[in-house]
Simulated assay, not measured.
Amino acid sequence: MDTSKHNLQTLFEQLGLPANDNAIKDFIARHSPLPAATAIQDAAMWSESQSQFLEEGLEEDSDWAEVIDELDALLRH
């Protein structure tokens, strides 16, 4: 069982995206604001597998759900 603490960096790594602080800030700046009517997993910037990972993480209230919610909030500002 994976008991590590997840954060934005580990989420970006899991999604196969550059995960340093500048890359995360740039990603958020490029893709913000996410429209209120768009669920994070349905946003156009994700590949099918990334979208599926985000959706499953939220639906299953997995260890990733909290950090996915954090990214969602950052993309809405």
Rank of each mutant, 00 (worst) to 15 (best):
Met1Ala: 10
Met1His: 09
Asp2Leu: 08
Asp2Trp: 13
Thr3Pro: 00
Thr3Tyr: 12
Ser4Leu: 14
Lys5Arg: 09
Lys5Gly: 02
Asn7Tyr: 01
Leu8Lys: 13
Gln9Ser: 09
Phe12Ser: 05
Glu13Phe: 12
Glu13Asp: 05
Gln14Asn: 08
Gln14Ile: 05
Leu15Trp: 04
Leu15Phe: 08
Gly16Pro: 07
Leu17Ala: 01
Leu17Gly: 10
Leu17Gln: 11
Leu17Val: 09
Leu17His: 11
Ala19Lys: 07
Ala19Asn: 15
Ala19Arg: 03
Ala19Trp: 03
Asn20Leu: 11
Asp21Ser: 13
Asp21Thr: 14
Asn22Asp: 13
Asn22Arg: 14
Ala23Asp: 15
Ala23Phe: 05
Ile24His: 05
Lys25Ile: 09
Phe27Met: 05
Ile28Val: 14
Ile28Phe: 04
Ala29Gln: 11
Ala29Met: 10
Ala29Val: 02
Ala29Glu: 13
Arg30Gly: 02
Arg30Lys: 15
His31Ile: 02
His31Gly: 05
Ser32Thr: 11
Ser32Leu: 02
Ser32Tyr: 01
Pro33Arg: 13
Pro33His: 03
Leu34Thr: 07
Pro35Ile: 06
Pro35Gly: 08
Ala37Met: 10
Ala37Ser: 14
Thr38Trp: 02
Thr38Glu: 12
Ala39Lys: 08
Gln41Thr: 05
Asp42Pro: 01
Ala44Leu: 01
Ala44Gly: 06
Met45Val: 15
Trp46Thr: 05
Trp46Ser: 04
Ser47Phe: 00
Ser47Asp: 03
Glu48Ala: 08
Glu48Ser: 12
Ser49Asp: 12
Ser49Trp: 07
Ser49Arg: 12
Ser51Lys: 04
Ser51Phe: 05
Ser51Asn: 08
Gln52Lys: 14
Gln52Phe: 11
Gln52Leu: 10
Phe53Gly: 00
Phe53Gln: 12
Phe53Asp: 01
Leu54Asp: 06
Leu54Tyr: 09
Glu55Gln: 15
Glu55Leu: 15
Glu55Met: 12
Glu56Lys: 11
Glu56Gly: 11
Glu56Leu: 13
Gly57Asp: 10
Leu58Thr: 03
Leu58Trp: 00
Glu59Phe: 12
Glu59Ser: 09
Glu59Gly: 03
Asp63Gln: 11
Asp63Ala: 14
Trp64Thr: 06
Trp64Leu: 14
Trp64Gly: 08
Ala65Ile: 04
Glu66Leu: 15
Glu66Arg: 04
Val67Phe: 02
Val67Met: 09
Ile68Pro: 01
Ile68Cys: 03
Ile68Ser: 06
Asp69Val: 02
Asp69Tyr: 07
Glu70Lys: 08
Glu70Arg: 07
Leu71Gln: 10
Leu71Asn: 04
Asp72Tyr: 01
Asp72Ala: 04
Ala73Cys: 01
Ala73Arg: 11
Ala73Ser: 12
Ala73Leu: 06
Leu74Trp: 02
Leu75Ala: 09
Leu75His: 07
Leu75Arg: 02
Arg76Glu: 07
His77Met: 00
